[in-house]
């Protein structure tokens, strides 16, 4: 029986590859969006505009304090009531963006705050505008603190795309879930799903470890 199910699994393997492609698509799009929004919010958060800081702080607390499943349900079920009807894929991206940018915002703000205050003073006394100070002096130095945890966060975000399956995006976990109904070999099916996830995230974990060692010096 086992061998029969195995050959069936090999037969529908292309289906899994399609799921992997979808996972990659969700992950890639949302990582770009999260990084962009996260950097902007992080810079604003480390500025000294009190109102903005509070606002972003509240948003970050919400995004970090509630489970991602609940956030997806909020985006997918409640936003339509408020007049924002989304398909599954954009809803997934929006939920990922809401969650991921909050985490990246914290990493960026932490990195910027880690830069010595004297650098700001030196930059401003060189006559740079606020934006130039950030772009030319502060961010390049903060990058050393930001990059290792950022790559670690990317791994977490890629893994979190699996939760998107609950609203019916046909990605890898969803494919596994659909398959297990037809091929009742849970261990085999989800081991395959796990191996495919492993093949994306393990290289990134190695990269993150490498960067951590490299940047520490």
């Amino acid at each position: 029986m086992m061998a029969f199910y195995f050959s069936r699994l090999v037969e529908i393997f292309p289906f899994f590859l399609r799921g992997l492609w979808m996972t990659t698509k969700v992950a890639f799009c949302s990582l770009i969006i999260c990084t962009l929004i996260g950097f902007i919010l992080g810079m604003l958060r480390s500025s000294n505009i009190v109102f903005l800081k509070r606002l972003i702080g509240t948003y970050v607390a919400f995004a970090r304090g509630t489970p991602f499943v609940v956030q997806i349900f909020i985006v997918f079920f409640i936003f339509p009531e408020w007049g924002l009807q989304l398909e599954a894929f954009p809803a997934a991206l929006l939920a990922m963006a809401i969650m991921g940018s909050a985490f990246i915002c914290e990493i960026v703000a932490g990195g910027i705050n880690a830069v010595h205050n004297g650098q700001w003073e030196a930059a401003s006394s060189s006559g740079l505008t606020k934006l130039q100070q950030l772009r030319l002096v502060i961010i390049p130095q903060a990058m050393k603190v930001i990059v290792p945890p950022l790559v670690g966060q990317y791994v977490l975000l890629i893994k979190d795309t699996s939760v998107v399956s609950v609203i019916g995006v046909m990605e890898l976990t969803r494919v596994g879930w659909v398959t297990v109904v037809r091929i009742p070999e849970g261990l085999m099916v989800f081991a395959l799903v796990g191996i495919l996830y492993f093949s994306i995230s393990y290289p990134l974990i190695l990269l993150s470890n490498y960067l951590e060692r490299r940047m520490a010096i």
Binding site: G186, L187, F190, V193, Y197, F198, S201, Y202
Partner: peptide, 23 residues
């Protein structure tokens, strides 16, 4: 440790949930 860290929790949950009965 490496396997756990590089696969999503949801997949691990499903692995046990659908896998344990087959065992």
């Amino acid at each position: 440790i490496e396997v756990i860290r590089s696969t999503p929790l949801l997949v691990q949950i499903y692995f046990l949930y659908f896998g344990l009965p087959t065992l």
